[in-house]
Design a protein around this nucleic acid. Structure first.
Length: 436
RNA sequence: CGGGGCGUGGCGCAGCCUGGUAGCGCGCGUGUUUUGGGUACACGAGGCCGCCGGUUCGAGUCCGGCCGCCCCGACCA
């Protein structure tokens, strides 16, 4: 993208409504704009981040054997009456009427709909297990939206649902998702800690929430440093090996981890390597048995021909919240520091002297070779402005093309995270950047 | 929902107490000057002062109602 022709409205000053860093930086870096309380429009750079996160989530879901679908945002009230949640859910659910006075709602979650979908098509135990997910906008009419995109009313969520024949199967699905989540968070460049949780209004009896560490997180978390040493993405845990999943689950539960609410000082005392910090919840998984399959009358023919209500679980990752959470975890005084995997652009090319033949030529060449992965600051701006904007936007790499180096075929390469700079040739700059 | 605060050019704010027809900084445009970490000067564009009603000769300013937004608390991906 050429910055001179892009909608990336950076701000020098912080709009007064933004209190926390991620919100401030998202506004200042031109990622989002607020449309109403807790409702945001995603501008080009922000949308790229959101898509990058969604892409990683999707790849890990697929790798775990989950199938992607896309369910509608609008749901009939009917479905929720079947499960008994229409009245139970309360004012957080946005209820709508269409022109025929039919009652609809903007989905806050999709257990009912996916159960109904499965009920329509799945007849036999032979068709189980299955895990389905989608990445779709949700609406929860929060009493008090805040923290920008981290507690919006409208938010993008990956929600997945597992269907198994029996409890043992459900546990396998649960563990697969847990592993997929740890891999996802690792790839997103954040340290996530799974914690046993209350299952809340979704209902059920086995539940973990995933907290990522960020200095400005909402809750205090305590955990065993052992979590930090596990490489979830390695081949040590195979998705299709129940023994591996078991070993993985054991590792996740044997090490101490708790939020301040559930902190057990006695157990904590026994932890060898203590870690604590602030955390933000970015994911939540639940096992809830036959709560929905029973209430909604979803049964399949079992091995002996008699009907069995499938055991279910649901698995959520707040994709749009993750954008804010990532910034909370990775920023400095100058702005955002994106992990390479989610950055809207891998590199920014700063042409310090637009109009200078050598600079223009070098910058254009780099821009062409980086093929869409770079944001080219081709504005006729002063260098200081370009540097400040690039730092604010947080590109992992900055390629500074100035008249001093360009004449010699060199550029300055800067790594945003470390501030480290070096004078390198064009080719060398390109190879650094493509090396992830 | 309880408590607090705020709505004035794109952004940050002053003006309101003590009514007299809107101002500052940034940003934006043009020109000159600069140019390696938010350059300087000049000129310029841009404002139903959140909305409705009331008081008044006159309302950004006073009064009433409404709407919106933010913060703290209870609740949540």
């Amino acid at each position: 993208m050429r910055l001179s022709r892009s909608l990336v409205p950076t701000l020098k000053e912080t709009p007064s409504e933004a209190q926390i860093v991620s919100h401030r930086l998202m506004l200042r870096a031109g990622l989002v704009r607020q449309t109403a309380a807790g409702i945001y429009a995603w501008l080009p750079a922000g949308w790229r981040v959101l898509q990058n996160i969604a892409r990683i989530v999707r790849e890990e879901q697929d790798a775990a054997g989950a199938q992607e679908v896309l369910m509608p945002t609008i749901q009939p009230a009917e479905l929720w009456r079947e499960s008994g949640r229409y009245d139970a859910y309360g004012p957080e659910m946005l209820r709508i009427k269409d022109r025929h006075d039919r009652e609809l709602l903007y989905g806050p979650t999709n257990e009912e709909m996916i159960t109904d979908l499965m009920k329509q098509s799945v007849r036999s135990y032979r068709e189980l297990p299955q895990i389905l997910y989608h990445i779709q906008w949700k609406f929860r009419d929060e009493v008090r939206p805040r923290f920008g995109v981290m507690r919006g009313r409208e938010f993008l969520m990956k929600d997945g649902y597992s269907f198994d024949l029996d409890y043992a199967g459900a546990v396998v699905s649960y563990r697969k998702m847990m592993l997929a989540y740890m891999r996802t968070f690792q790839r997103l460049g954040v340290q996530a800690i799974p914690m046993e949780a209350e299952s809340g209004p979704i209902g059920g009896d086995l539940s973990h929430e995933f907290i990522i560490l960020a200095p400005t997180g909402e809750s205090q978390v305590f955990y065993d440093a052992a979590f930090e040493r596990i490489d979830y993405s390695s081949a040590n845990f195979a998705m299709d090996s129940e023994a591996d999943l078991e070993r993985f689950a054991a590792a996740m539960t044997e090490h101490y981890a708790a939020t301040d609410e559930k902190h057990d000082t006695q157990r904590w005392a026994g932890v060898q390597e203590k870690r604590d910090g602030r955390g933000i919840e970015v994911g939540h998984i639940f096992y809830f048995g036959t709560r929905y399959s029973k209430s909604m009358g979803f049964a399949v023919a079992g091995r002996d021909g008699t009907p069995v209500h499938p055991e279910m679980g649901s698995y959520g990752i707040g994709v749009s919240r993750m954008v804010g959470a990532l910034i909370e975890a990775h920023h400095d005084d100058a702005g955002i520091i994106w992990p390479d995997s989610v950055a809207p652009f891998r590199a920014a090319i700063l042409n310090l002297k637009v109009g200078d033949a050598a600079c223009d030529q070098a910058a254009e060449e780099l821009y062409g070779k980086l093929d869409g992965a770079a944001l080219y600051d081709d504005r006729e701006e002063r260098a200081g402005v370009k540097f400040a904007d690039a730092d604010l936007m947080g590109h992992p790499w900055q390629i500074v093309v100035g008249p001093r180096g360009a004449a010699a075929g060199n550029v300055e390469l800067k790594r945003r995270a470390t501030g480290e700079r070096q004078e390198v040739s064009l080719e060398s700059a390109l190879s650094h950047i493509s090396r992830r």
